[in-house]
């Protein structure tokens, strides 16, 4: 025992980014926020002497299966940071806001992909953080089922998706203690249903974080970092 002993953290983050046409005016800000987010979290953790031994980040870019077919979902593997920071940055910078069809988007399917990530189960302590940036409400899950590009094995409804997230009674695909969900999404269905009913959620109700004040951003980063 003694001063050589140090608790370390394995942190996984999944960034779900709405890349539909309506995001056109804010997509660059969201991309910048995504690129800064993990660094802001790790900076706060380091300040609190919480040392991250492994950090991985993954991107899920989403649109609308019904309107965008094969371009509805782009999912990457985890990037190991800082080793693969360049590839991660390149991926985020390549995202374009286009398509989307009607107002609601397939954000729940993106969330489903994120929840079923290949999470790191090693390490002394872990965090599994999902961040969603969107300016739109969600379609009911399965809305784009007939598009011909809809994935197999998707949750059948919001109830099943909730069970994938898990709760106090039953674990889902994310570690119950490690999971954190951060929504930069409007106060609209089904984001507000998730915000009100799921464990370990922070929700900033706006269009993809638009109008987020510095103090609010600081509160969000501190909530995520200090609960790590």
């Amino acid at each position: 025992m003694g001063s050589n002993y140090q608790i370390t953290y394995n942190v996984d983050m999944v960034f779900c980014i709405d890349c539909t046409g309506s995001m056109g005016n804010i997509i660059e800000i969201v991309k910048k926020n995504a690129l800064n987010f993990y660094q802001d979290v790790t900076d706060v953790m380091e300040k609190k002497h919480k040392h991250i031994s492994q950090l991985r980040v993954r991107v899920v870019a989403f649109r609308d299966y019904d309107a965008d077919k094969e371009k509805a979902m782009m999912v990457t593997d985890f990037f190991k940071l800082p080793q693969e920071a360049e590839e991660f940055e390149k991926c985020v910078r390549s995202l374009k806001a286009e398509g989307g069809g009607d107002d609601p988007e397939d954000g729940l399917e993106a969330l489903a992909y994120a929840i079923k990530s290949n999470w790191d189960t090693e390490g002394m302590k872990k965090r599994q953080v999902i961040v969603v940036w969107t300016d739109a409400p969600t379609h009911p899950i399965g809305y784009g089922k007939d598009s011909g590009y809809y994935p197999n094995g998707m949750a059948s409804d919001i109830k099943e998706l909730s069970s994938w997230w898990g709760g106090a009674q039953q674990s889902g695909f994310v570690d119950n203690n490690a999971k954190r969900l951060l929504l930069f999404a409007p106060d609209a269905p089904d984001w507000n249903v998730i915000s009100q009913n799921w464990d370990n959620v922070l929700h900033f109700p706006s269009e993809a974080g638009k109008g987020l004040a510095n103090l609010e951003y600081e509160e969000i980063i501190n909530t995520i970092s200090n609960s790590i």
Binding site: Q196, D199, I220
Partner: peptide, 9 residues
């Protein structure tokens, strides 16, 4: 009350 909602805060 602030604008941030959810069960974490």
């Amino acid at each position: 009350a602030g604008r941030i909602m959810g069960s974490l805060g």
